[in-house]
Protein backbone atom coordinates (compact mmCIF):
# COMPACT_ATOMS: atom_id res chain seq x y z
CA UNK A 1 0.00 0.00 0.00
CA UNK A 2 2.92 2.23 0.84
CA UNK A 3 4.37 2.04 -2.62
CA UNK A 4 0.99 2.57 -4.20
CA UNK A 5 0.40 5.75 -2.27
CA UNK A 6 3.85 6.91 -3.24
CA UNK A 7 3.15 6.21 -6.91
CA UNK A 8 0.04 8.33 -6.73
CA UNK A 9 1.73 11.28 -5.16
CA UNK A 10 4.59 11.23 -7.63
CA UNK A 11 2.13 11.14 -10.51
CA UNK A 12 2.83 14.62 -11.71
CA UNK A 13 2.91 16.29 -15.07
CA UNK A 14 5.01 13.50 -16.64
CA UNK A 15 2.56 10.73 -15.92
CA UNK A 16 1.06 9.16 -19.03
CA UNK A 17 -1.40 7.00 -17.19
CA UNK A 18 -2.58 7.30 -13.62
CA UNK A 19 -4.76 4.86 -11.71
CA UNK A 20 -6.20 6.16 -8.44
CA UNK A 21 -7.70 3.71 -5.95
CA UNK A 22 -9.32 1.75 -8.75
CA UNK A 23 -11.71 -0.97 -7.60
CA UNK A 24 -13.98 -3.40 -9.39
CA UNK A 25 -16.84 -5.31 -7.83
CA UNK A 26 -18.63 -7.90 -9.96
CA UNK A 27 -22.30 -8.44 -9.19
CA UNK A 28 -23.24 -12.09 -9.19
CA UNK A 29 -26.76 -13.43 -9.13
CA UNK A 30 -28.73 -13.57 -5.88
CA UNK A 31 -27.16 -10.31 -4.77
CA UNK A 32 -23.73 -11.84 -4.21
CA UNK A 33 -20.68 -9.73 -4.96
CA UNK A 34 -17.07 -10.44 -5.75
CA UNK A 35 -14.47 -7.80 -5.18
CA UNK A 36 -11.99 -8.51 -7.97
CA UNK A 37 -9.83 -5.41 -7.67
CA UNK A 38 -9.28 -3.18 -4.68
CA UNK A 39 -7.47 0.16 -4.40
CA UNK A 40 -5.20 -0.31 -7.37
CA UNK A 41 -3.02 2.76 -7.72
CA UNK A 42 0.00 3.26 -9.92
CA UNK A 43 1.19 5.51 -12.68
CA UNK A 44 3.35 5.11 -15.73
CA UNK A 45 5.45 7.57 -17.68
CA UNK A 46 5.60 8.37 -21.37
CA UNK A 47 7.68 5.86 -23.39
CA UNK A 48 7.68 3.45 -20.50
CA UNK A 49 7.07 -0.28 -20.70
CA UNK A 50 5.05 -1.15 -17.63
CA UNK A 51 4.20 -4.79 -16.92
CA UNK A 52 1.46 -5.93 -14.58
CA UNK A 53 2.56 -9.27 -13.19
CA UNK A 54 0.72 -11.56 -10.86
CA UNK A 55 -0.74 -15.02 -10.31
CA UNK A 56 -3.68 -16.29 -12.35
CA UNK A 57 -6.96 -14.80 -11.25
CA UNK A 58 -5.50 -11.73 -9.54
CA UNK A 59 -7.49 -9.41 -11.77
CA UNK A 60 -4.61 -8.05 -13.84
CA UNK A 61 -6.56 -8.44 -17.08
CA UNK A 62 -9.47 -6.59 -15.51
CA UNK A 63 -7.16 -3.67 -14.75
CA UNK A 64 -5.99 -3.64 -18.36
CA UNK A 65 -9.55 -3.81 -19.67
CA UNK A 66 -10.49 -0.84 -17.52
CA UNK A 67 -7.57 1.13 -18.95
CA UNK A 68 -8.83 0.16 -22.42
CA UNK A 69 -12.28 1.38 -21.43
CA UNK A 70 -13.82 -2.03 -22.10
CA UNK A 71 -14.82 -2.42 -18.44
CA UNK A 72 -15.86 0.32 -16.03
CA UNK A 73 -14.35 0.63 -12.54
CA UNK A 74 -16.80 0.58 -9.65
CA UNK A 75 -14.59 2.96 -7.69
CA UNK A 76 -11.56 5.17 -8.27
CA UNK A 77 -10.36 6.98 -11.37
CA UNK A 78 -8.24 6.20 -14.43
CA UNK A 79 -6.53 9.12 -16.17
CA UNK A 80 -4.75 9.16 -19.51
CA UNK A 81 -2.77 12.37 -20.03
CA UNK A 82 -4.82 13.85 -17.22
CA UNK A 83 -8.20 13.07 -18.79
CA UNK A 84 -10.50 10.51 -17.26
CA UNK A 85 -11.02 7.36 -19.30
CA UNK A 86 -14.68 6.97 -20.15
CA UNK A 87 -14.75 4.21 -22.76
CA UNK A 88 -12.68 2.60 -25.47
CA UNK A 89 -10.85 4.83 -27.95
CA UNK A 90 -8.18 4.79 -30.60
CA UNK A 91 -5.69 6.40 -28.18
CA UNK A 92 -5.48 3.04 -26.36
CA UNK A 93 -4.97 0.18 -28.82
CA UNK A 94 -5.16 -3.30 -27.41
CA UNK A 95 -3.50 -6.57 -28.41
CA UNK A 96 -5.33 -9.63 -27.08
CA UNK A 97 -4.10 -13.09 -26.19
CA UNK A 98 -6.49 -14.69 -28.69
CA UNK A 99 -6.00 -14.03 -32.38
CA UNK A 100 -7.97 -11.02 -33.54
CA UNK A 101 -6.93 -10.60 -37.15
CA UNK A 102 -9.94 -10.29 -39.41
CA UNK A 103 -10.21 -13.43 -41.56
CA UNK A 104 -11.80 -11.55 -44.46
CA UNK A 105 -8.97 -9.08 -44.86
CA UNK A 106 -5.40 -9.52 -46.02
CA UNK A 107 -2.47 -8.70 -43.76
CA UNK A 108 -2.21 -5.33 -45.52
CA UNK A 109 -5.89 -4.37 -45.07
CA UNK A 110 -5.90 -5.71 -41.51
CA UNK A 111 -3.08 -3.34 -40.63
CA UNK A 112 -4.82 -0.49 -42.48
CA UNK A 113 -8.09 -1.16 -40.65
CA UNK A 114 -7.73 1.32 -37.78
CA UNK A 115 -6.48 4.06 -40.08
CA UNK A 116 -9.43 3.50 -42.43
CA UNK A 117 -11.82 3.92 -39.49
CA UNK A 118 -10.20 7.18 -38.58
CA UNK A 119 -10.19 8.61 -42.10
CA UNK A 120 -6.48 8.48 -42.90
CA UNK A 121 -6.05 9.10 -46.67
CA UNK A 122 -5.49 6.02 -48.80
CA UNK A 123 -1.91 6.71 -49.84
CA UNK A 124 -0.70 7.50 -46.33
CA UNK A 125 -2.60 4.50 -45.01
CA UNK A 126 -0.95 2.16 -47.46
CA UNK A 127 2.56 3.43 -46.83
CA UNK A 128 2.20 3.42 -43.09
CA UNK A 129 0.78 -0.09 -43.08
CA UNK A 130 3.65 -1.28 -45.28
CA UNK A 131 6.11 0.29 -42.84
CA UNK A 132 4.67 -1.51 -39.81
CA UNK A 133 4.27 -4.77 -41.71
CA UNK A 134 7.98 -4.57 -42.48
CA UNK A 135 8.72 -3.74 -38.87
CA UNK A 136 7.12 -6.99 -37.74
CA UNK A 137 8.78 -8.89 -40.60
CA UNK A 138 5.69 -9.82 -42.61
CA UNK A 139 6.38 -7.98 -45.89
CA UNK A 140 6.37 -11.23 -47.84
CA UNK A 141 2.90 -12.00 -46.49
CA UNK A 142 1.24 -8.61 -47.03
CA UNK A 143 -1.32 -10.11 -49.43
CA UNK A 144 -1.92 -13.30 -47.46
CA UNK A 145 -5.08 -13.96 -45.46
CA UNK A 146 -4.85 -14.73 -41.72
CA UNK A 147 -5.99 -18.35 -42.21
CA UNK A 148 -2.73 -18.93 -44.09
CA UNK A 149 -0.57 -17.61 -41.23
CA UNK A 150 0.85 -19.25 -38.13
CA UNK A 151 -0.14 -18.14 -34.63
CA UNK A 152 2.97 -16.02 -34.17
CA UNK A 153 2.42 -14.30 -37.51
CA UNK A 154 -1.22 -13.52 -36.64
CA UNK A 155 -0.05 -11.93 -33.42
CA UNK A 156 2.46 -9.84 -35.37
CA UNK A 157 -0.41 -8.65 -37.58
CA UNK A 158 -2.30 -7.59 -34.46
CA UNK A 159 0.74 -5.71 -33.14
CA UNK A 160 1.33 -3.95 -36.48
CA UNK A 161 -2.35 -3.01 -36.72
CA UNK A 162 -2.30 -1.52 -33.24
CA UNK A 163 0.92 0.44 -33.79
CA UNK A 164 -0.12 1.72 -37.22
CA UNK A 165 -3.09 3.44 -35.57
CA UNK A 166 -0.72 5.72 -33.56
CA UNK A 167 -2.10 5.04 -30.08
CA UNK A 168 -0.89 7.02 -27.09
CA UNK A 169 -0.67 3.77 -25.18
CA UNK A 170 -0.44 0.17 -26.37
CA UNK A 171 -2.19 -2.34 -24.13
CA UNK A 172 -1.21 -6.00 -24.32
CA UNK A 173 -3.09 -8.77 -22.56
CA UNK A 174 -0.74 -11.78 -22.41
CA UNK A 175 -0.07 -11.28 -26.12
CA UNK A 176 2.36 -14.19 -26.39
CA UNK A 177 0.54 -16.56 -24.05
CA UNK A 178 -0.88 -18.74 -26.82
CA UNK A 179 2.45 -19.15 -28.64
CA UNK A 180 4.96 -21.96 -28.36
CA UNK A 181 8.11 -21.30 -26.34
CA UNK A 182 10.41 -20.59 -29.28
CA UNK A 183 7.98 -18.25 -31.03
CA UNK A 184 7.26 -16.46 -27.77
CA UNK A 185 10.95 -15.84 -27.28
CA UNK A 186 11.28 -14.36 -30.79
CA UNK A 187 8.21 -12.22 -30.30
CA UNK A 188 9.51 -10.81 -27.02
CA UNK A 189 12.74 -9.74 -28.70
CA UNK A 190 10.84 -8.34 -31.67
CA UNK A 191 8.58 -6.46 -29.28
CA UNK A 192 11.60 -5.02 -27.49
CA UNK A 193 13.21 -3.75 -30.70
CA UNK A 194 9.92 -2.23 -31.90
CA UNK A 195 9.34 -0.46 -28.59
CA UNK A 196 12.90 0.85 -28.73
CA UNK A 197 12.54 2.21 -32.26
CA UNK A 198 8.99 3.61 -31.97
CA UNK A 199 9.24 4.95 -28.40
CA UNK A 200 5.79 3.56 -27.69
CA UNK A 201 4.31 3.48 -24.21
CA UNK A 202 3.24 -0.05 -23.38
CA UNK A 203 1.14 -1.46 -20.57
CA UNK A 204 1.29 -5.21 -20.62
CA UNK A 205 -0.20 -8.01 -18.57
CA UNK A 206 1.58 -11.33 -18.11
CA UNK A 207 2.12 -14.14 -15.63
CA UNK A 208 5.45 -15.06 -17.23
CA UNK A 209 8.14 -13.87 -14.80
CA UNK A 210 11.03 -13.93 -17.27
CA UNK A 211 8.96 -12.08 -19.88
CA UNK A 212 8.12 -9.41 -17.32
CA UNK A 213 11.72 -8.90 -16.24
CA UNK A 214 12.97 -8.86 -19.84
CA UNK A 215 10.46 -6.34 -21.16
CA UNK A 216 9.63 -4.14 -18.19
CA UNK A 217 10.98 -0.76 -17.23
CA UNK A 218 8.69 -1.15 -14.25
CA UNK A 219 6.75 -4.12 -12.86
CA UNK A 220 3.55 -3.74 -10.87
CA UNK A 221 3.15 -6.99 -8.94
CA UNK A 222 -0.44 -7.79 -8.03
CA UNK A 223 -1.75 -9.87 -5.15
CA UNK A 224 -4.94 -11.88 -5.18
CA UNK A 225 -8.37 -11.73 -3.53
CA UNK A 226 -8.97 -8.91 -4.07
CA UNK A 227 -6.29 -7.89 -6.54
CA UNK A 228 -4.19 -4.92 -5.57
CA UNK A 229 -0.64 -3.73 -6.13
CA UNK A 230 1.58 -5.66 -3.74
CA UNK A 231 4.89 -4.30 -4.85
CA UNK A 232 6.31 -1.99 -7.47
CA UNK A 233 9.54 -3.37 -8.87
CA UNK A 234 12.01 -1.45 -11.01
CA UNK A 235 14.57 -3.83 -12.52
CA UNK A 236 17.47 -1.63 -11.45
CA UNK A 237 20.05 -4.16 -12.64
CA UNK A 238 19.39 -3.06 -16.23
CA UNK A 239 20.73 0.37 -15.22
CA UNK A 240 18.04 2.17 -17.19
CA UNK A 241 18.99 0.49 -20.45
CA UNK A 242 16.83 -1.91 -22.35
CA UNK A 243 18.06 -5.37 -23.21
CA UNK A 244 17.22 -6.54 -26.72
CA UNK A 245 18.45 -10.12 -26.54
CA UNK A 246 17.21 -12.45 -23.89
CA UNK A 247 20.55 -14.12 -23.17
CA UNK A 248 22.01 -10.71 -22.28
CA UNK A 249 19.80 -10.79 -19.22
CA UNK A 250 21.73 -13.72 -17.85
CA UNK A 251 25.00 -11.81 -18.01
CA UNK A 252 23.69 -8.96 -15.93
CA UNK A 253 24.33 -8.95 -12.19
CA UNK A 254 21.11 -8.80 -10.29
CA UNK A 255 18.93 -10.65 -12.80
CA UNK A 256 19.03 -13.86 -10.79
CA UNK A 257 18.27 -12.07 -7.54
CA UNK A 258 15.30 -10.28 -9.04
CA UNK A 259 13.95 -13.43 -10.64
CA UNK A 260 14.28 -15.23 -7.31
CA UNK A 261 12.49 -12.43 -5.52
CA UNK A 262 9.60 -12.37 -8.02
CA UNK A 263 9.32 -16.15 -7.95
CA UNK A 264 9.01 -16.00 -4.19
CA UNK A 265 6.21 -13.44 -4.48
CA UNK A 266 4.49 -15.57 -7.10
CA UNK A 267 4.70 -18.66 -4.89
CA UNK A 268 3.31 -16.82 -1.89
CA UNK A 269 0.49 -15.31 -3.91
CA UNK A 270 -0.17 -18.39 -6.02
CA UNK A 271 -2.14 -19.75 -3.08
CA UNK A 272 -3.98 -23.02 -2.82
CA UNK A 273 -5.22 -23.06 -6.40
CA UNK A 274 -1.75 -23.18 -7.93
CA UNK A 275 -0.33 -26.61 -8.76
CA UNK A 276 3.28 -27.40 -7.84
CA UNK A 277 4.19 -27.05 -11.54
CA UNK A 278 2.60 -23.61 -11.74
CA UNK A 279 4.45 -22.46 -8.66
CA UNK A 280 7.81 -23.74 -9.85
Amino acid sequence: MNQATQARTTAGAHAKLVLEDVGKVFQLRKGEQIEAIKDVSFSMKENEVCVILGPSGCGKSTVLRMVAGLDDPTSGRLLLDGREIGGPGSDRGMVFQTYTSFDWQTVQTNVEYGMRLNGVPKKERREKAAHYIELVGLSRFADAYPKQLSGGMKQRVAIARTLANDPELVLMDEPFGALDAQTRWHMQELMMSIVESTRTSVLMVTHDIEEAIFLADRIEFMSRHPGSILEEIVPAFKKGKRVTRKEQLLDLDGFGDLERHVMKLMREQGGDEATPAERA
Binding site: G69, L70, P88, R92, F96, T100, Y113, G114, L117
Partner: peptide
Protein backbone atom coordinates in the same frame (compact mmCIF):
# COMPACT_ATOMS: atom_id res chain seq x y z
CA UNK B 1 -15.78 -13.61 -30.57
CA UNK B 2 -15.93 -10.62 -28.21
CA UNK B 3 -12.27 -9.85 -28.89
CA UNK B 4 -12.98 -9.03 -32.54
CA UNK B 5 -15.49 -6.36 -31.52
CA UNK B 6 -13.25 -5.13 -28.71
CA UNK B 7 -10.29 -4.86 -31.07
CA UNK B 8 -12.35 -2.62 -33.33
CA UNK B 9 -13.42 -0.55 -30.30
CA UNK B 10 -9.82 0.03 -29.21
CA UNK B 11 -8.97 1.06 -32.77
CA UNK B 12 -11.62 3.78 -32.56
CA UNK B 13 -14.60 2.20 -34.33
CA UNK B 14 -18.09 3.61 -33.83
Amino acid sequence: RDELLETAMTLGAS
